[in-house]
Structure formats: structure tokens, C-alpha cells
Design a protein around this nucleic acid. Sequence first.
DNA 1: ACGCGTCACTAACGCGAGTTAGTGTCCCCT
DNA 2: AGGGGACACTAACTCGCGTTAGTGACGCGT
Lengths: 348, 348
Amino acid sequence: MAARAGVSRTTVSFVLNDRPGTNISPTTRERVREAAAELGYHPHASARGLAGGMSHILGFVLRQSAEQVAGDAALAETLRGLAAAARTAGFRVMVEPLDPVQGSYESLLRAQHADGIVVSGPRIDDDGLARLARDGFPIVLQGSLPGINVPSVDVDNVSGAWRAVEHLIGLGLRRIACITNAPLAYTAAQQRLDGYRAALDAAGIPFDEDLVAYAAFDAGSGHRVMAELLARGPIEAVFVASDVVAFGAIAAIREAGLRVPDDISVVGFDDIALAAFFDPPLTTVRLPAYDLGVAVGTALLDRVAGRPVPDRMLLPIELIVRSSTAARKAPANERVTATMKEGRGPGP
Amino acid sequence: MAARAGVSRTTVSFVLNDRPGTNISPTTRERVREAAAELGYHPHASARGLAGGMSHILGFVLRQSAEQVAGDAALAETLRGLAAAARTAGFRVMVEPLDPVQGSYESLLRAQHADGIVVSGPRIDDDGLARLARDGFPIVLQGSLPGINVPSVDVDNVSGAWRAVEHLIGLGLRRIACITNAPLAYTAAQQRLDGYRAALDAAGIPFDEDLVAYAAFDAGSGHRVMAELLARGPIEAVFVASDVVAFGAIAAIREAGLRVPDDISVVGFDDIALAAFFDPPLTTVRLPAYDLGVAVGTALLDRVAGRPVPDRMLLPIELIVRSSTAARKAPANERVTATMKEGRGPGP
DNA sequence: ACGCGTCACTAACGCGAGTTAGTGTCCCCT
DNA sequence: AGGGGACACTAACTCGCGTTAGTGACGCGT
């Protein structure tokens, strides 16, 4: 203990923690700082936690399946953002993947291992979560989960999808299909479908159930489902609620002897790193993964500190126009009036 | 405290920690267990850490740049593996991304926040690491870093690359180019290049400097560099030390009016989720990311517990043969004798 | 019947900080 | 000069658990 630097314990604690309301002479303050640096003093984390009643740790609970974690490129970015936000407040991040469904993460909070947790990809059938929320633990959801009284932060899936489809409509396209990124039990999938539908409504285009198909996270499902859509009838464009799924869909389009975007325009969702290098470069909706992490982290820190936190926060989403979408090939007797030109995507 | 369950503190500690050498009657043992469950007793993590001198936390330090983290799909998987290994020993994982180079992670260990750390993507110019290692803290490297006395776990990049190139040679191909996944300052890039060279040597094919090009993590660099290679002269195959880079390379090949694998065979590295859905499905080397996490976690736990740990552990790597490689189109007067047929990749 | 030993458990200390209450010193005001 | 108060600091308690030393009860052997 750095007490041997001339002063004693309490003073050290006051100085190093910048305790407000206490007056310590600048001389002593300096002396303590110097001694701490010289001795390489690092307050023992567990001792701090025990005495202060705070672990200074934020938990990051991954509620999605192993396959989803593997396929979700955004997760690492979100984690980075969360850690960055945590660090500004002197917190660190502990990760808790729920490999088998069994592993309860309740102890994370109940043992006060973490002062609060971010739950990523929350599921409705999570009674542990409900219990923790009821007991007043600081929790923030990353994603959406209706019917639970916990603040949540999410990207604006609805308006993201809306803008994507609006873009297609602006290009003069009318028969626009939709491929979801996952079963509708996943709220993000439902929301993106809602956005698709809202955009159609706004443009006065009737919703056609036959133009909707349901994929499941991976490119394989996108491939299969796109083939089905093509078999049902001709379409001019497709909004695919996931770049990875879109990758499979594009393959199916190509195999059907059609070309993107000449015959069918495609808009994706997520803007994964490879999207700019697809053939053709994919027009997509950028999901601000890092910012999402920062936002959810900031919200949780506020919650932990007892500051008010909005019930729901939606992060804006950006449409990145590349080359997988193009104006409708107008028959000679009609002219495309839409001259909409949005965004600017970094090309390869 | 569950002492009000009939017995007293020490007994509870003994029972819940399964302390060996102590004899507690099954009756009492049962009673304690029951009371703990009923009261929802969770030992306070910080208190345990303070009293026991162990935080039961493993640190996962990300030493790579933000761009690398974003582009590295394997990271999340490795983290999952690490967390799984940690859990079996009652440990949790704390993540420490080094966003700006500044942030020192030394305090993670020095403040005994973590009992040991895994350093992913270690850099040579890391004097903090050297200091920690010198001071005897439990550290395991995930990756390779010559010239430092710390145990390390890595995938077998050399033999992975070797097998990939061997596969190409077995198909009768001779003019085989190589595109690295990164500058050679990255040990993995150097190792994969070494494997490429070793395979050529073993087959008696002379190494040609002109057939090697250096990419930098992303598909864009792969595209650019492949175009350069094609401009230098005709090639029959290319080993690209990263699937993402290979994605760009394939685009360049296509733009040059050539076809994969008819004109040029391509082998990648990593087996990212999308590899099976490339056009054509990519033959590649699978990097066992999850297993890597488990291995590195197990090694660190051994190190923390004082058990002996091998200086270096290499995880075997598997070649996944899909459709981006094909036997050489033999002129009529010669026959391909190689009938090698390895692996079986899950196709779309 | 006494002593020794195991069994089953408890009392009390210590981990390393934060924190409250308290102590001494110096200065300023009247 | 004496008293009040800010100033600068310290002694001692606390957090919740692990752990060592110690206590009483009971059984067995001679």
C-alpha cells in the first residue's frame, strides 16, 4: 500500500478517486500521485468492488444461438462499441455467451459480478430475464422485445426497410418481393417486414402475400427461398432483410438466367464488409453496429448510475446505394420520372 | 447469509465450495444446499475474489486494429470457445479491446481484475506485454510471436497452406500464384506464405517471386492485387490466404474474362460462413475458430492453476474441397494422373 | 474408567480497499 | 488573547467471504 509515501490510507483513497467535497492540499495530492506511479500501485479490483459495492463491470449477455453468433459480423463491432463506452466511465465488459440454453446468467447480476447487463438478442421465453427485471437490476436490451418493462436500444429496422423499399419504388419498380432475414418470431425480422409493407402502402402499392418469403439467417436459405419466389411469378426487385441471405438470393437469380440489376434489383440489409464487393456491389442498409454498442453501453451506465433512461431508443439507419439496384427498363412509350439519387456508397 | 439455515458460515463455505479434505455429514450438506437454493443465495463475487485471492476471471485482450476486429469473423467464435472453456472451470471472460493503441491493459492483471489473460493478435512492439510476462503473470498468446517467452496457441498456418497448395499441385496445376492475407509483418501471413513455398519445394516446383502478391485483409486489396498478378503473366491457380481477400480476387479474375475454376483454380483460407456460397463455392482451409478459443482457454486455465503448459500448441487445420478448384485442362497429348480427392465440403 | 482420536462443526481473523467519525493545526475575526 | 471554524488529515469500522485454529461430542481400545 502506498501509505508509505508519507501519508496514510484514507488520503490515498481520496486522492486517487478524486472524491468531491474533500479538500486535500495540492502538495499532498501530488506526492500521493507520484508515489502511486513510482510503486506501480493498482488498487485491487475485488477489494474495490467489495468495499464500494460496485464491480465496475458491465455484462454482455449473448442470448442468440451459436450459429447466429458465428454468422453475425456485427456482434464483434457492437462489443467494441460497448467496451469503448464502458471504458469512458471506468467500467470493463464481461461477456456471457449462452451456449447451451441451460446456462443461467442470473448469477452475473445476483452475485454482483456485474453492476448491470446488456442482453443481446433477447427471447420472449426468458423467465430469468423477467425475474431480474422485476427485482430491479439494471438491464438494457439490445434489440426489441415487446411486453417487458426494460429499456431497450435498437437500430430503426422499420425505417431502414422502409427507405430501402422506397428507393426501389423511386426507381420505378413495382413488383417488389421481400425475403426476411429470419422467422418472424425474431422481432427484427418482423420489423423489417413491417417497413417493407409500410413503404408499399405509402406508395399505394397493394401488399401481396405471394411476394414474401421467409429465410433463416444463412445464404443457403436465401438461395432456396429466392428460387421459390422466382417460380411463383415475375418480379422486378427484391428487398432482402440481410446481406448474407441476399448473397444466396443473388446466386439463385443468376442461376435462373436473370441478371442483377438489369432484370431484378436487389437491396440488402446490414452492410457487411463484403457487401461492397458483391457482384454487383450491393445496395444495402447500413447497420451502425459500433454506434449501437456505444448507445446501449451509455444507456446501461446511466441506468447503473441511477440517471433516467428512455424506455426505447432507435438508432438511425443509412441507405447505401451501390450497383445492385437500377431504374426500371422502361418500355419505349413510357418514361421514368423518378430521378431520385440517394447516398453514396464506398465502391470497391 | 444462509447461516440462518441451521448451521454457520464456515460450513456453508465448505459445502458450497466442495472443499476436499473436510467431512461434512450428508444431512447437513443437504440442509445447506436446500437453504441456499431457497434463499437464492449467490456468493458475492468481489468478496470471493478478495478473500480467495482469485477473481475467477480470464481476460481476452484484442491487440488487433479496429478494422481487423470488424473484418475477422472468427473472433466471435474464438471468444465463444474461450468462454466455454472458462465456464467449465468456474471462470468468466472479460474482454479488453485496445481501440486506440494507448489504452494499457496492464491494469487488467496488475489490479488482479483477471487471473490471467489471452492476448489475441500480439504485436512485437508491445512492451507492456513483455513487462507482464517478465513479472510472471499468466499469459497465453493466441497467435504467434517469435522471440517472447510466453506460451502460445495457434492454428497450423504452415501446414494449412501447404495442404491447400498440395491440393492444387495434385490437380496437375503448376503455375500457382499466392496472395497473402496481410503484410508479412503479420506472422500468420508469413506462415501461410511459408506453407505455400514448402509445398512447391516438396513438389520440385521452383519458387517464383513474381507469382506472389501482398494483400491487406480486405476484398478490395485482393481485387487490386489479383489484377496485377494477371497482368504479369498467365497463371493456372492461386492460393489466397484469406477467403475475404479471395472474394475480391475472384471478382478480378472474372473481370479479366477468365473463369473459376476452368481457367484459374482458387483456394482460400479461413472457411468463412459465406465461402460455401461463393460463385463457385470456395475450396478453402477451415480455421477451427471455436476450438482455438477452447484450446487457448484451457491452456490459460492450466497456467493459472500452476499446471505445466506446452510452449507452443498448433491446432490442425482441414482442407475443404468445393468447386473453385479443378484439374488442369490437359492438352490432348497428355493425361492427368493425379486423381486425388480430398475432404467433403458442405455445399449450398 | 480413562485417554486418545476422529468427526462435525464453530469462532475469529484477514483479504484490501472505501468510508464515517473524529482529531489536531492553523488562521482569522472580534 | 480567546474562540470558532475551515482545513488537512487519520483511526477505525465495514464490505462478504475464505480459512486456520480450536471446541465439544462421541466411539473405541486397554
